[in-house]
Design a protein around this nucleic acid. Sequence first.
DNA 1: CATGAATGAGAATTCATTCAT
DNA 2: TATGAATGAATTCTCATTCAT
Lengths: 196, 196, 196, 196
Amino acid sequence: MKKREAPPEDGPLRADAARNRERVLAVARELLARGDSSLQMNQIAREAGVGVGTVYRHFPARQDLLEALVNEHLEALLDKAHAAEASEEPWSSLRRFLRAALDLQLADIGLAEILNAPRDAHARTSQLKAELFATSGRLLERAQRAGVVRPEVGAEDIQRLMCGIEHAVRIGGGERRVVSERYLIILLDGLRPTSG
Amino acid sequence: MKKREAPPEDGPLRADAARNRERVLAVARELLARGDSSLQMNQIAREAGVGVGTVYRHFPARQDLLEALVNEHLEALLDKAHAAEASEEPWSSLRRFLRAALDLQLADIGLAEILNAPRDAHARTSQLKAELFATSGRLLERAQRAGVVRPEVGAEDIQRLMCGIEHAVRIGGGERRVVSERYLIILLDGLRPTSG
Amino acid sequence: MKKREAPPEDGPLRADAARNRERVLAVARELLARGDSSLQMNQIAREAGVGVGTVYRHFPARQDLLEALVNEHLEALLDKAHAAEASEEPWSSLRRFLRAALDLQLADIGLAEILNAPRDAHARTSQLKAELFATSGRLLERAQRAGVVRPEVGAEDIQRLMCGIEHAVRIGGGERRVVSERYLIILLDGLRPTSG
Amino acid sequence: MKKREAPPEDGPLRADAARNRERVLAVARELLARGDSSLQMNQIAREAGVGVGTVYRHFPARQDLLEALVNEHLEALLDKAHAAEASEEPWSSLRRFLRAALDLQLADIGLAEILNAPRDAHARTSQLKAELFATSGRLLERAQRAGVVRPEVGAEDIQRLMCGIEHAVRIGGGERRVVSERYLIILLDGLRPTSG
DNA sequence: CATGAATGAGAATTCATTCAT
DNA sequence: TATGAATGAATTCTCATTCAT
């Protein structure tokens, strides 16, 4: 469990280094997409056609690789959140955001892991998570003020419940799009304030 | 993929064998409770103070151990389901059953795994799962006939959603009882038919 | 029965890799010479002063190691066979070949095992065996056409009988060279056509 | 490698003990006949329907079991040798004896092992082996005096060569009876004195 | 910087033998 | 005396990580 130095992030990478980095990321993405979230360094190196050492140079630990991979989806998700915030309707914007979030989580098996990780390898990740958390919190509160979401749930609950729905979709069969839509609707209905 | 013989289950165990078996089960239970579901034979043997061979004698594979551990909870859950069936109120009996299920799943990290496993090591497990599935299906249908649950969900959906809620509770902090109760309520409300 | 990748045999090995490979082979050879044909990976690693992983990298299975060890002897034997074929005298060339074969088989306890193995790990081995079989078959037939070997024996019989002689030499004491020479003469005389 | 006490051989066995002993022997015989000469105590016990301890009580080591099994064949072989000795023709009696020996060795995979073992577990075995060795020696010498066997071979050579032939028969295919007869003829012809 | 061979701890599994019942 | 559960050393094999080239 020895600590390695952080990868040099100062200057722009040399052309070949950048190419290798991209290859590694591409392979890792591919593996996640195939549902293999083990991210074994040797396997990645082999499939990327680089040495293991190269993978370790760019990503000293599995977590670094995972964050690099997930961050772009995190950014995409943050964009969705901001877009939702720009909309006028508290409820439908929240719904749209959660739908997008669920799609992304299902497409990227590492996203939930990063969202739930207690600590991050890179400040960038922490920052993105914090922003995302804040924005979804505002979306939620707006909906609560409008009386369309039960008042006792918080942003963290939403995140956890979304990961729960993702899990429910993953563990079984059926057409992904259809199932995830059905389960999301159940969650959304459950979030509505108790009528009466 | 060599086939092992089933562990001898015929007669009552000898006193010392029974004691060791219990020790192994106790350690395994403890490990699951600590959240470690890897159930490594060496580790279990070491912590139980028995030889590895002893663990293998009683439980030739991880799956056998897991099922032995889970089956008693599965039976308890089935009892709850039958009790719920005996009740008159479609909705509250379903709710009571799901509450019990969630509590058990949270207490036993292996329960969900067994519930979702595509195949079982022991016929007993398959039988219990089938009975449980059938009973919860009847509970669900009764509630649907009474118009208190949306008609498009099936017993499998309920199981998957419950595992999702379990997951949501596990991945975060907070007082387990409180959090699980809150999330369950959201799920239950979500299962109600769309009013209007 | 998982398939492993073949050990990389393409380019020339790195200096240290080659050194380790040689060490492993040397130890394995030594073990065979000592009469231990079990070729246990950890024992070899220990005696060679390398990690187990290194042995596995070079030789994923016992069979690979054995074939690597034996192939050079197989090649030497094939050379002998070709040399014998180049000679003019049917009988003495066959005798010379079988003498060489017996010497090699006695020097390398793995040779007979590979010769009798129903399948090989490497194509190279199969190829060598096939060539050897064909060549010894031609030597045999030539001797049969010359009327100096009984007609009903085939190349396979010769191989089996030679392994039998090897076995006879191994199971007892006495000066190896002397005993093997005596037994070989008995076999050779036995192969002559029945006079009368 | 701790030494166990010899099994009590004094009095006649109790009826049930004798029955168990026979069961064990029967199973072991069966296993040898199937070509499995590993004689694993647990396996034997299981198939015999007795506890391992029982097997160990009767046969403290694999060698004891093997000898018990083989001794009756050894006795049969000795009978053949004596019968051969009683015959008048030096050559055909030797031939008949060796044929019988080869048949027995092929039928009992343990026979050769006992014959070649440097030391025996039971005096009875040593005695049988010595008698057999002496008798075959006399058969051999008679044939040599008659000038029908080359003078430089001894009883030990015959034994080793016979084991070699057995080995040659075992390692390949073909009809056992046919192959063993063919190889035996080659050996017998090879044993004849060099004509001229 | 890149490479990939080497490392070695650790997990799974088997089996001969012992010993409590 | 019989039983068979228990033992644990021995073996195979994997993989994250290091480091010589």
